[in-house]
Structure formats: C-alpha cells, structure tokens
Amino acid sequence: MVNLPEESLIVIKNLRKSFNDDGGVLNNVSINIKEGDLVSIIGPSGCGKSTLLRCLNCLELIDSGYLRVGDVELKRDRPDQRPNEVMLDAAHKIRGEVGMVFQGYNNLFPHKTVLRNVTLAPMVVKKMSPDAAREVAMKQLKKVGLEEYANKYPSTLSGGESQRAAIARALAMNPKVMLYDEPTSALDPELVGEVLQVMKDLDSEGMTQIIVTHEMQFARDASDYIVFLDKGEIVEYDDGDVLFTQPRNPRTKEFLRHFTGMAVAC
C-alpha cells in the first residue's frame, strides 16, 4: 500500500462487513490514510463505498478487522463476537474524532436554526458554554460562507447551502478527519461548485478528508489519492493522475471508460 501504518492517521486492516449472510459488502479491505490527505473513493453503485465510510465513523460496527483513527483503536476478531463495552466505547470515541456529511441535504436538524445546528453538539457533547460554542460556530459558518444565514431555519436554505451548513456543523466538533458520502449527488448542477470549493479550501488548510463521489473531475483534480472500490474490494489505490491516466486493473479501465470526457457525472 501507499502509506505505512506508523505514519498514518487512519489505518484499516482486514475490514469485513456484510448485512446478510449471503456474501460480504466489504471483503478484507485494508487501507492507510496520511494526515492532511484528500482521498476520493470511487466505484460503481453497490460496490460498498458508502458502507466503508459508515464503518469508518462507526455508524455501522465492523464485522471483523481492525480500525484506528488517531489514537483510538477498534478491533473485532469474528462477526459472532458480541460487541462489548470496549468496542462500543471505542466506536463512540471514533465518532467524536470523525466529522461526517451525508448524501441528502435533509440531515440538518429542521427544528433548530443554522446556528443552533452548529452549536448543539459542542454544547451537548463537549459541554462548551453557549458563548464559546457560538464563537466556534460563527467561525465555521464564516469559513463556509454562511455567517449571514446563522438565524435561518434549514427549510429556507438551498441544497448547496444546506450541505455547507452540514460541513460547518461537523467542523465545529474539531474532527481529525472529515468524511463525505456523495455530498453533491442530490444537488442541482449549479450548486455543486460551492460545496466542492469548501472542500478544496479545507484541503489547503491541511484537513484530512475522505470523499465518496461521482465527481470524477473533482476527484482527479483535488485528490491526493483515489481509491477504486469494486465488489467490496479495493481494486486500485493510487495517485489521482496516475489512476486516471494509467489504470493497471482492467476493472478500473472499464469503470473509467464510462466517464471519459464527462466533467460532471451522475
């Protein structure tokens, strides 16, 4: 693999996850990600991209394998091993280290203003004072260009604004890594750019980011590395330009052929 485990922020080893008994969604996935990298995960529908992301922030508990985010380790030997306190505690800690932005833009809390959406977790989870949380929140909202929208309700926001607010909400928890699950796939084409721009800005600040995406152009331009996932396995993991221009695996070639000449897909 590209990175050595010792210098990596995120280490995944032999990860398996399935939802039924009939075959795995993720089979023996291993990957290391360095701090500050922007990694795009691409692959056909149903290849396990989203599941990998959800395993990474422990919304789904892995069946077996090893997972490390920063200093927090989670290990499960066999699928039939009951989740114990140590595992659940680790899963909760990992969720605290990882920020996540979801596919649809309906994941903001509709009963709270944009500002309260952002301050909620710092106040509830980190027990920040309202003033401190507000300060953090306004800083993050400014970063995504939404300081004017602080007192609006999510229902009045466009899809792009919603996704930027969701990014600010995740950033307010000061995560070590940001995960995005197809953050622009539900957006109108003209709104995609503003969201991608925020991710590029974060990259230049040194934020570690993992993005499941169909935006091939963005993946190629902005990513430090691209992972091509197919049928629950990592087929290729390489530098963006290398993977796009000289794919080694025939499955990668086949997949990329669909996107030739397309700036915006899906």
Binding site: F102, H111, V125
Partner: peptide, 24 residues
C-alpha cells in the same frame, strides 16, 4: 437520517434522543 446525523456528531443515543428526536 436524523439519528445518524446526531450520532455522527458524537452524541450518545440519549443525547440524540433528547436534543434531536424528541423535540421533533
């Protein structure tokens, strides 16, 4: 998705319940 969003922010199930799910 409201549950997931709350849990992904590091809330416990009880916090998610109290702050996000119940009010709605």
């Amino acid at each position: 998705t409201q549950w997931e969003a709350a849990l992904a922010l590091g809330m416990t199930r009880w916090q998610a319940m109290r702050e996000v799910i119940l009010p709605q």
